[in-house]
């Protein structure tokens, strides 16, 4: 095989990616079209009806958009103390030691557990705890799903942030110590500001992950089609309504579900793009 053929082969195989992406976008747009056309794009986004009474079908994405945003936001908040601690543990305090390797391995393994198993654990272990604490009577809901989502994204965020904490030059830290700073002061006033943009971007990428997480949320959020009015109330996320109803849906309802999928796809794509851009910039500086 000569070089020219080789080049063509590589080029041709790289075409698969634009092809698949184009196909994804095309398929989502064409099949969501019916719903957008029927309800109007803005109406679909802002309506909170979800009823499939024959002859008077009403579908709107608002409950699911708010469910998704609520679970994601709460998950990020819950995961901050844990992921920051793990990141500083492995990236600064115990950098290069055996215990850091152990903790790193543990979090790596946590990242590998399938989301359906997280869901089971959430359902059979976490939900009873939430019930027994009298936080909510049925145990499932936005809060339960968020706690589980937080556990799922901790490994991802902490290994990314730890990378940026490790990149803070040793010279800089010693410079601060030489002025009489304690370790906590070096962490707060030197490492944190310097690694801050990188750490922040790892949280943005984690949002991208949490938005589309399906099975865990489906098993824990309670599966009701309303806008959650408190953190303990039940609801549905964009991903969980699709998981729950896609199999039984047809016609307008199917199109509405695909429309929700399209919205989820676009939000995730935008968040991921922002996160990747930020992380690139943080890596360069």
């Amino acid at each position: 095989m000569n070089d020219k053929l080789y080049k063509i082969l590589l080029f041709a195989s790289a075409l698969i990616i634009p092809l698949v992406c184009g196909g994804v976008i095309y398929a989502l747009f064409t099949d969501a079209y019916e719903a957008f056309q029927h309800f109007g794009f803005l109406k679909f986004l802002t309506s909170s009806d979800w009823s499939y009474t024959q002859g008077d079908e009403q579908y709107g994405a608002l409950p699911f958009i708010s469910g998704t945003l609520m679970t994601t936001l709460l998950a990020i908040i819950f995961c901050i103390p844990f992921s920051l601690s793990v990141a500083f543990f492995t990236g600064e305090y115990f950098r290069g030691t055996k215990i850091a390797t152990v903790l790193g391995t543990v979090t790596d393994l946590l990242a590998g557990i399938p989301s359906i198993i997280y869901g089971l654990w959430g359902f059979y272990t976490l939900r009873p705890i939430i019930m027994s604490l009298n936080i909510s009577p049925q145990g499932s809901g936005v809060l339960t799903a968020s706690v589980m989502l937080a556990i799922m994204i901790i490994p991802y965020v902490s290994s990314l942030s730890s990378e940026f904490i490790k990149m803070v030059p040793k010279d800089l830290k010693e410079g601060a110590y030489s002025l009489g700073a304690t370790r906590a002061e070096v962490v707060r006033k030197i490492i944190f500001p310097v690694a801050g943009s990188g750490i922040f971007s790892s949280y943005v990428l984690a949002i991208g992950r949490a938005l589309g997480e399906t099975m865990t949320v489906t098993m824990l959020i309670g599966n009701t089609n309303n806008i959650p009015d408190s953190i303990t109330s039940t609801g549905n996320s964009m991903a969980s309504i699709i998981a729950n109803q896609f199999g039984e849906a047809s016609d307008l309802r199917l199109s509405s579900l695909i429309a929700i999928g399209l919205i989820l796809f676009l939000i995730t794509a935008i968040i991921n793009m922002i996160g990747k851009m930020m992380i690139k910039r943080a890596r360069i500086s």
Binding site: P169, D171, L172, E174, G175, A176, Y177, S178, L179, G180, A181, T182, I190, P193, V194, G196
Partner: peptide, 21 residues
């Protein structure tokens, strides 16, 4: 206490290390 000592004994390193932020 190291933090007390380091205030009384300053240090300048091989590479200049102004704090970038």
């Amino acid at each position: 206490e190291p933090i007390e000592v380091r205030r009384k004994i300053g240090m300048v390193f091989q590479r200049p290390t102004p704090f970038p932020t």
